[in-house]
Write a protein that binds this DNA or RNA. Structure first.
Lengths: 337, 337
DNA sequence: CTGTTAGCGCCTTCAT
DNA sequence: ATGAAGGCGCTAACAG
């Protein structure tokens, strides 16, 4: 079944069919309706390959996901898929290791898939600064907002990481905590850097000296966080609260604390980041800075589509996270060591 | 950059180029190497749309996922993506609601994407029986193995759910539990039916009468499990152990138990199913029947590719799950009511 | 408003 | 072993 068949069946020419398929204005309404009617009857679906061969572009966007274990992204992806679908695009997911080079991957994708846009879930600012100019199609970098990056075709959407971290740590301090352990994402993670600044600021503003000994690094997965907390414990770090820069990290760290005999929140209070669904079903329910996943996804797609379809300039969107008070935070008592 | 350019550059004709691209045997090795060389130099990538338009088929497979909240599938998907990539295929993910009709979705996908195969993650046996004959391309149904389904182009791969459930409940009984609560997936879930049979059998073999009052139904997400356990508690169900037919269900149920003041494993022992990464980082670490995700994914893809490329017949593969003993199971003490 | 027609990049007989 | 040429289904000038 091709447009030729439809042309024959409807008694008009292929161009007319093409016009109604593409919803062009220059078709008499009756003709259009007639053709549409026939297409429905025979269940005609235009051949995507032929169309794309002709117009030299696809109607797909790809999601480049850094970190397969990051549950926050898993959630995010489902929303993204749904929203791009609403706009009539198809989303293709490309999973990368957390330490892979997303620019190389993107260039490969560009050649092979020729998508109309790319949404990066996470990304390394240095990689982008160095090589994003190779990527000439509309793109958006999700969850990372950096002033260092300024490309006409790269929008950024995320939350105010610094303010969020400030709020998280302030929450801990308000409960009376002074010795606060912080576990951040990898050194290359821009959000983690911002969150660290916010955390540090909150401490300083409350007369607490930031102690590098209480700062740990982790990848965004359970195991790494588990190991990091174990190291912290091994070197006898003393703290009554933990600010983990992701819920996944928080959960891994809590696991390590539990194995070492410490309880949350009795011995250590914990606040995480992201607000993944799991955080509300943990025992204890995890306090967290909740990223508005659905809205972030929506904005990402809107921005991208505007760039694609109207040549809109790149924009930066910063949303405010909200605090979720869980059962994992209470006033200090003892804590490790 | 098209094969025409390569033809010019290499001094041979487009047909020859096409032959080397498709790795045809009838090309002189030197010629082939020469052409390959040039293609590498200029970074030529064949136009997928043109090729597919010509050969009337794509080199993609689609993953139809039922249930966006099912963390087990999220894990599974990452593996599937990786393996199909190894085989030179691209995987497209289609998320469906847990209660959507996967057959309708598949037919739509067939028309629009024309993939060479479909892998269903989860699926309703009735839907398949009624409408799978509409799907004429190689397919595999993952995590569901049913004798009721017999199509020449539908492989099935999963674990022996019945035996696994038998083992899980036996484990509970071995610890001394006799009042065992069971929370299964939706009534339409075939794995849940099998798991229920296995669980019941284990009880009977140990002289325990299966009590329908201790049986709850849940969707494969936290919230539903949470609600189900709350209902069970509300009607004053008495039990000292819980067998949850998925880790996600286990976690949701544990949350409800905790909110009601019951502790795991002190008051209630819990064993889950799936062995998602999260299960090992819960507090307490969750006992579970671990599905070999990586191998399941591998077998799914292998089967599918064999069907696609060699017209191999559909097969059924049943793998054995392994038990993961966590901290969530211990001998009984009190339990609810 | 509608029809005619020339490709888009590639594969594939059919010759040579 | 290689080349020439005709489409695959669709879009977009260009003509009416």
């Amino acid at each position: 079944m091709t447009i030729k068949d439809i042309a024959r069946l409807s008694g008009c020419s292929v161009s007319t069919i093409s016009r109604v398929i593409n919803d062009r204005p220059d078709v008499r309404p009756e003709t259009k309706e007639h053709v549409l009617q026939i297409m429905r009857e025979v269940g005609f679906v235009p051949n995507t390959n032929a169309r794309q061969l002709k117009i030299q572009q696809s109607r797909s966007v790809v999601f480049v996901v850094k970190g397969t274990q990051n549950m926050f992204f898993a959630d995010f992806l489902v929303h993204l898929q749904q929203v791009v679908g609403l706009y009539g695009y198809s989303g293709i997911i490309s999973y990368l290791d957390e330490d892979a080079n997303e620019m190389e991957a993107a260039e490969k994708i560009l050649r092979e898939i020729k998508p109309k846009g790319i949404i990066f879930l996470g990304g390394n600012v240095d990689n982008f600064r160095q090589s994003f100019d190779q990527i000439t199609i509309p793109s958006v970098l999700a969850t990372v907002v950096s002033e260092e990056l300024s490309f006409p075709n790269l929008s950024m959407v995320g939350v105010d990481d610094r303010a969020a971290a400030y709020q998280a740590v302030t929450h801990l301090i308000a409960q009376g905590h002074r010795r606060i352990c912080v576990i951040g994402g990898p050194p290359s993670s821009h959000p983690s850097k911002m969150r660290r600044l916010g955390a540090q600021q909150a401490m300083e503003d409350n007369g607490i000296v930031f102690d590098p000994q209480l700062y740990g690094l982790s990848s965004y997965n359970f195991e790494s966080a588990y190991n990091t907390m174990n190291s912290l414990l091994a070197r006898r770090a003393r703290f009554t609260a933990l600010f983990a820069m992701s819920d996944v990290i928080a959960i891994g760290a809590i696991r390590a604390l539990a194995s070492a005999g410490y309880r949350v929140p009795e011995d250590v209070s914990v606040i995480g980041f992201d607000g993944i669904p799991m955080s509300r079903y943990c025992v204890p329910a995890l306090a967290s800075m909740v990223q508005p996943t659905g809205e972030l996804a929506l904005r990402c797609v809107e921005l991208l589509i505007h760039q694609i379809e109207h040549g809109a300039p790149a924009q930066t969107v910063v949303l405010a996270p909200t605090i979720q008070e869980g059962e994992s935070v209470r006033p200090p008592r003892g804590g490790p060591a």
